[in-house]
Amino acid sequence: MKMTSIKMKNILDERLKNPDWHTSFNRDKDIFRVEWKDTRQGISITIPNVIAKYEQKGEEALEDLEYHIKEALKIMNETHELTGEEKSIYPVIRSTSFPTKTKKGLKLVYSEHTAETRIYYALDLGKTYKLIDEEMLKKESWTMERIREISIFNVRSLPSNLKQDRVADNDFYFMSSQDGYDASRILNESLLEEMKANSKGDLAVAVPHQDVLIIADIQNDMGYDILAQMMMKFFAEGRVPITSLPFIYENKKLEPIFILAKNKPTNQSEPRREE
């Protein structure tokens, strides 16, 4: 029997029972909301999206959703401090379309990175993390420079275990430790410099989603086509997509590139033409 919005709403009501939470359902917009009764802070879920995932993965999709909702609500109701938690502060890479404010209107702390990406900063809480906002910095008199230096130091301290795959005489390296900071390792300049020093061709770096870093030693035209196919696949599958464009790493800089049908990379400022 086909899953309806009302049936899914009832399932979520049952899974998210809590005397401190209030749930509601907007039939017109097909949106289910769960929030703290006292603060009215909460999360809105689009029911058709949940049904689509449920039809693909079944109970696993609901268990995953329930976990993330409960974690998010718990974080909303906690007070977090940066002082004393310096080792738990990390940079996270997001697309330039990612919001710069929280739903409460607080400005998130971020730095510019490339034409496709920004660097946000997060306080690691174990099973999840909280993006740092300007109010948190002001409260503890922290500067942007301080939080940037601490976070970059911490991400450089993370293990960088790469798996290698050779395809059509091109070398591809993958990092997917599932610690939430795989894409963040693109900020580890010493790693990129080491890979550049050992590369035979052009060094491409990619962060299609949060949980993977791809480094490619492109040694022939076929390598660009393979990389483009990888990017679209990973970007589509990622839970937190970032960008489908790879970067060329040269002179300690990352330049986004389009890969056209004839295998040649072009500057990111050029429009893409379908062939």
Rank of each mutant, 00 (worst) to 15 (best):
R273K: 02
E14H: 14
T39H: 14
Y67L: 14
D30C: 02
I43F: 01
H22R: 15
N18T: 10
M175L: 14
N49K: 06
E145S: 05
K253R: 11
V92E: 06
P19D: 15
D225H: 12
I152Q: 13
K139H: 13
I259F: 00
R148P: 00
T83S: 07
F234A: 09
F153K: 15
T114M: 03
T243W: 02
K127G: 10
E14Q: 15
V240Q: 13
I6C: 09
E250F: 12
E66H: 05
V207N: 02
Y173R: 04
E112P: 00
D169Q: 14
G126R: 08
M1N: 11
P208W: 11
G201N: 13
T96W: 00
D20W: 07
A261G: 10
F235D: 09
D28P: 00
K2F: 09
A236M: 05
E134N: 04
E193D: 14
K70Q: 08
E66F: 04
Q229N: 12
T102F: 09
W36P: 01
F258A: 00
K37S: 03
R118W: 04
G223R: 03
R118K: 13
N267D: 13
S141D: 14
E35L: 02
M136D: 07
R33E: 02
D28E: 12
N251A: 07
L203K: 07
R185S: 07
S24A: 03
D38Q: 05
L213S: 09
F234R: 13
L82A: 09
L125Q: 02
W36R: 08
I147T: 04
T266K: 02
I257F: 04
P48L: 06
Q210T: 07
K130T: 10
K196L: 14
H80E: 08
V155K: 11
N154A: 09
E145A: 09
D169R: 14
K127P: 13
N267C: 05
N161G: 08
K253Y: 00
R156Y: 00
E59N: 11
M8N: 06
K87F: 00
H22L: 13
E35F: 03
L131C: 04
I45K: 01
R33Q: 05
H68K: 04
I215Y: 05
F172Y: 02
P91K: 03
L203I: 14
S151N: 13
E140Q: 12
D64F: 11
Y181N: 13
W36V: 00
D169G: 03
G201R: 11
F32S: 05
E250V: 11
T114D: 04
I69M: 11
T46Y: 10
A61M: 15
H209R: 15
M195A: 09
R148K: 07
L260D: 09
L108E: 06
